[in-house]
């Protein structure tokens, strides 16, 4: 545990030089979007919460895939692996520390927005909400680590991760209503795991389910298991990439 906490400390201090970028990407931009949603005069309370719950998920997706995923791809580059090899910390421990560091980075915005939603919601199923939120975070961490380990070429990853984030967010009812879509679009959206993440977070807050909640939990757990198996196999056998193109 002490190695993990030391590695988290090291990661935060390493991000010092990028403080302005972090401030904008993780605090200023997300808070400004949340603020715009809140002051939008035409929305009712429940609609605001619907949008804010989607907004939390999109913030976590964006931060984890674009920042954590890229960080892990970057760590597999020769120079970075060599630099970390000078320290008494294994690659799996570094990855776990990175995951925890990025959870901590997104925590303020998530807690503040979630706090607002909970305070203004009429109905809350706490057990389902906590399970849904935790599974959402674990799933998105696994997917980000999976992408980071799968993507050898950092230059392609830089663009590809943004495309993946864009597709995941666009094809999910984050800012629009699932019920108003035609069956074809609904079918497409149900393939996207983000639709199910939204379901797991919104249903405990009293919103109507897009699909049976048990189906959403099952789908996400299954995908998480696949991602976990892949990550477990790759994470212990990380060597300097011998061929990135």
């Amino acid at each position: 545990m002490s190695k993990i906490s030391t590695a988290i400390e090291m990661e935060f201090k390493s991000l010092r030089i990028y403080w302005l970028q972090l401030l904008i990407v993780v605090f200023v931009m997300p808070f400004s979007y949340a603020f715009i949603i809140l002051i939008s005069g035409n929305l009712q309370g429940a609609s605001v919460n619907y949008l804010l719950s989607g907004y939390i998920i999109s913030t976590i997706i964006s931060t984890f895939i674009n920042m954590l995923g890229m960080r892990i791809t970057n760590m597999r580059q020769q120079e970075v692996l060599e630099l970390y090899s000078t320290y008494a910390i294994s690659f799996p421990t570094i990855v776990i520390s990175e995951c925890l560091a990025y959870v901590l980075i997104t925590l303020p915005i998530v807690l503040i927005v979630l706090g607002y939603i909970v305070a203004t919601s009429q109905v809350i199923n706490w057990l389902l909400l906590i399970c849904g939120a935790l599974l959402t975070i674990v799933f998105l961490l696994l997917i980000s680590v999976y992408l980071g380990l799968a993507m050898k070429n950092m230059f392609i990853a830089n663009g590809l991760f943004q495309v993946i984030t864009w597709v995941l967010i666009l094809l999910a009812p984050i800012y629009y209503n699932f019920e108003t879509l035609n069956p074809v679009f609904k079918g497409i959206l149900l393939i996207n795991p983000v639709t199910h993440l939204l379901n797991m977070v919104r249903v405990p807050l009293g919103f109507l389910p897009s699909v049976n909640l048990a189906y959403s939990f099952g789908y996400i757990v299954l995908l998480s298991i696949f991602a976990f198996v892949y990550v477990s196999k790759r994470i212990n056998s990380t060597h300097i990439l011998e061929k990135i193109f």
Binding site: S2, E82, S85, A88, S90
Partner: peptide, 30 residues
């Protein structure tokens, strides 16, 4: 990790860490 201290060929560094921090973290990990 237990026994080997390694100095790479290239001048690799963490841009945001001071000299004291870079060496200090090595000791903390030990």
């Amino acid at each position: 990790k237990q026994e080997v201290g390694f100095e790479p060929q290239y001048p690799l560094y963490f841009p945001s860490l001071t000299v004291e921090e870079s060496i200090g973290f090595a000791l903390k990990f030990k």
